[in-house]
Amino acid sequence: MSIPATEGAPQEVRPRQAGYRGTKVRRQRVRAAWTFLAPMLFALALVAGWPLLRTFYFSFTDASLSDTTGALFIGFENYLVYDDGAWYGLLTDPVWWRSVWNTLFFSVVSVSLEVVFGIIVALLLNAEFKGRMLVRAAVLIPWAIPTIVSAKMWAWMLNDQFGIINHLLMALGIIDSPIPWTASATYSMWAVIMVDVWKTIPFVALLVLAALQMLPKDCYEAAEVDGIHPVKVFFRVTLPLITPALLVAVIFRLLDALRVFDVIYVLTSNSTSTMTMSIYARQQLVEFQDVGYGSAASTMLFLIIALATVIYLYLGRRQLGVDQ
């Protein structure tokens, strides 16, 4: 789960009244603040900070899953090493580069589709009609269903012999023979994207809907009086106004998509045609027990996501600066 879209850096607390600063009460409050923060910071250090440092360290060792303490330091050998006339290591592994490509392809395509359909659903939910609350609740259902369960539900619907999707497509005469959705190299990536898009449209739609509901009514009234076409109004007025919220949704979805694991693992297991960076790293770590090499892959993934985060924070700051 990611932090919900809160834009950029936190706001400043309102300034305190004069004369309050430096008093005994204030010192007591600051001390209490750190006391209250300590358990949370300790917990985060234990489950996030320290393990991350260990992962970095492991990526420079030959650690194996059964014995992580007696690992030898081997420098960059997990990443890249020249040995006996040939290059070895993560950066020369075609399967790794395939999984990098798969991750990027999956992220860009699924997030783009989610944004387009998310906006359409949000516009729909923003319209006035009877039973709006019911529809809004129904649209939330895919979001609440565990990823594993939605992957299994879709795997059943996409089943090559008995699946309802092949059945429908054949009944409509669109295809002649059943498509092996999850097994074929051509279709499996699209099957995965289809499931992910289905599951995450609600998240994007809700963020966009929240932005839509904050829009001022008067410019729409003005546009209507002037007889401007609704499509033009959408592209000229609505879209620019919801862009900040859209940007937040895109970044959060993108960061989520870059670390995708469960939906792909359940739908297509370790098949190379859909393998992502997370799946590659876990396979090396757990199934091949090669903690050193797997950690190198994890570190690469972390660096890619960290880069995306830094860009986001930078843009978020700038965005705030422009608004104020």
Binding site: S2, I3, L44, L46, V47, A48, W50, P51, L52, L53, R54, T55, F58, A63, L65, T68, L255, L258, R259, F261, M277, S278, A281, R282, L285, V286, V291, G294, S295, S298, T299, L301, F302, I305, A306, T309, L313
Partner: peptide, 19 residues
């Protein structure tokens, strides 16, 4: 805190396994 929420889970997998 914001940074930790962006961690890919797999990046802490080996370290957390050890912990």
């Amino acid at each position: 805190i914001l940074g930790v929420s962006m961690f890919p889970q797999v990046a802490v997998l080996s370290g957390l396994f050890e912990v």
